[in-house]
Structures are given as C-alpha cells and as structure tokens.
Simulated assay, not measured.
Amino acid sequence: MILSIVLLLVGFVILIFGADKLVEAASALAANFGIPNIVIGLTVVAFGTSAPELVVNVFAAINNSPEMVMGNVLGSNIFNVLGILGVSAVIYPLAVKSNTTWIEIPLAFLAALLVLIVASDQLLDKLPEDLITRSEGIVMLLFFAVFLAYNIIVSKNPGQKPESIEIPKYSSAQSMLWIIVGLAGLVFGGKLIVDNAVSIASSLGISERVIGLTIVSIGTSLPELATSIAAVRKKKVDIAIGNVVGSNIFNIFFILGVSSTILPITIQPENFRDIWMNIIAGLLLFVFIFTGKERKLERWEGVIFLVLYTAYVTSLVMDSL
C-alpha cells in the first residue's frame, strides 16, 4: 500500500516532467521550422498541457478501466472550474475576453451537456445499458477538429492580440532528444499512475471512480493549476481563465473522444452524479461571468467555487467509506 502511494507520486512527477519537456522541445522544434508562435500555442502547447490526462486515460482504456476514464475526465473538468478558477479568482478577480464569454465558455458548457446526452442510452433510447460508443467518440473528435479550426481562424483576426509564449532555444537535434525523453516520461509516468491508482483503490476498498475523480484528476491537472496561478500573479487573468476553459473542451472532445474510441465506456449510475456536477460547474461559471457590471469572476465567486468543490470531494470520500 505504502509502495503504491510512493509509486503513484513518482508517476505524477515523471508524467508532469515529461509533459513539460515535450512541450518545450516540440515548441522549439516548431519554431526552428518557422511555425508562428500563435500556431505553436494553439497546437503544441495546448496538446502538451492536456497530455497528462490523455496518457492516463489511454492507459486506463487499454486496461479496461472505464471508471478511471470517466473519473479522470470529469474530475479534471470539475477541479479546473471549481478548484483552479476558485483559487485564481481569490488571488485576483478574473476579467474575461469577449470570445471566451460568448463562445468558449458556452461551448465548454455544451460539451458537458453532450456527455450527459451520449451517456443516457437507457433514458433516451431505452437500451439495456448506458454506453459511450466508439461512434460517439469519433463524433467528439470531429467536434474537437472544428474547435481547433475555430481557434486558428480567431488567432488570425487582426484585432486579436496573440498571447506571448516563451520558447526555449534548442537545436533540432536537442529538440528531438527531449521529445523522446518527454514521451518516455509521459508513457512511464502514466502507466505508474494508472497501475498504482487501481492498486490503492483495491487496497482501500474505494472505487476506481473516486480515485479518478480526486487523486488522479487533481494530479493530472497540476500543469493547468501552475499555469493559471502564474498567469494571475502576473495579472494576465485572461490566460488563466482561457487556459481552464480550453482545457475542459479538450478533455471532453479530444481526451474522452480518444478514450471511447479505444474502449466503449460503460456508464455506471454513480457516474451521473459526476456528470451533473460537471454541468453545474459549467453553468455556474457562465452565470457568474454575467453577474455584476463587468464580465468578471469576482473573489467572492471564487470562494463559492472552492466551498462547492470541498463539499463535493468530502461527499465522495464519505460515500466511499
């Protein structure tokens, strides 16, 4: 049990280190080939920050652990909004750009609703079980392709100020070496996390769903947490909220899409509680943005997010005891 906990923590360290090095090296390699910064930011960096969730879910799908798949995706999205935005807003109120307000936040909310729709086979289609099928996973990937195309089109708008990203100076050979190291870290760290999270769940008699919703989802969301807090401390609040909203869209359309394409995901009755929590978090974010005179997430709203997240996690732990 203790060894599994240690290996789980080691897995998180290796996974996040691998993701960080992969982003740096791939960004440097892209820059060496003359690819514009904004395209690097929307593709390499965006994929890189979601790499921990993706790798963990791929291993969970391969290991036939649908509860871990759903727990990690939904847990990450809930933590992103209630935890990361809650902490960020308490540090400094988060102003929201027009595109984020009118397109990306509603799209993240619709993505949360989409999970409810594709998971409700018994209710909507009178089928014997609730299942996210491969075909539904492919549809999510198509939605993701549209979202990616939208981002690239918006980035080319003359009135759109691109966010600056720091790209390290690596030679192409160094970049390739670090890409290999980063990928190895992702694969090795991801496997350590999934194997030992399942082992801990078995030892404690806790479901893989709860482990995925708490320990695994928070651990894989650490890059987003670090990015958002660093952005808020530099008063770049639009990066903080855009980072979280974009990550939530990635998690559902891309990561859940890939996972369900690998393995059709059986939905348990308990999963609907988490699906609804994800919807409530997205709805609250949308409502809070429109309260007050400005499009802003205030400190008191961040406190509400944190209280709600604490209550949710506490209820998960209490129910599992």
Rank of each mutant, 00 (worst) to 15 (best):
I2C: 03
S4A: 15
S4E: 14
G11W: 12
L15P: 02
I16G: 00
L22Y: 15
E24Y: 07
S27I: 01
P36V: 00
N37I: 05
V39D: 14
I40C: 10
V45T: 03
S50K: 08
P52W: 04
P52C: 06
P52A: 05
E53K: 00
V58P: 00
F59R: 05
M70E: 04
G71T: 04
N77Q: 05
L82D: 02
G86C: 15
G86F: 15
Y92K: 11
N99T: 07
T100E: 06
P106Y: 13
A112Q: 10
L114G: 11
V115E: 07
A119F: 07
S120T: 07
Q122S: 11
D125H: 11
K126Q: 12
E129G: 03
G137D: 00
V139E: 04
V139H: 02
F147A: 13
L148M: 12
A149Q: 05
K156Q: 15
S164E: 10
K169Q: 12
Y170G: 07
S171V: 05
S171P: 02
Q174N: 13
W178R: 00
I179M: 15
I180L: 14
L183A: 01
A184P: 13
F188P: 02
G189N: 01
I193Q: 09
V198C: 11
S202H: 13
R209E: 00
G212I: 09
L213A: 08
V216W: 05
S221V: 01
A231H: 00
A231K: 00
K235T: 14
D238E: 05
V245A: 03
V245E: 03
G246D: 14
N248V: 01
I252D: 01
F253H: 02
S260T: 01
T266E: 10
I279H: 04
I280Y: 07
L283K: 06
L283R: 06
L285P: 02
F286I: 04
T291M: 13
L297K: 05
W300T: 13
L306G: 08
L306C: 07
A311H: 12
Y312S: 06
V313N: 05
V313F: 08
V317K: 06
V317S: 09
S320I: 10
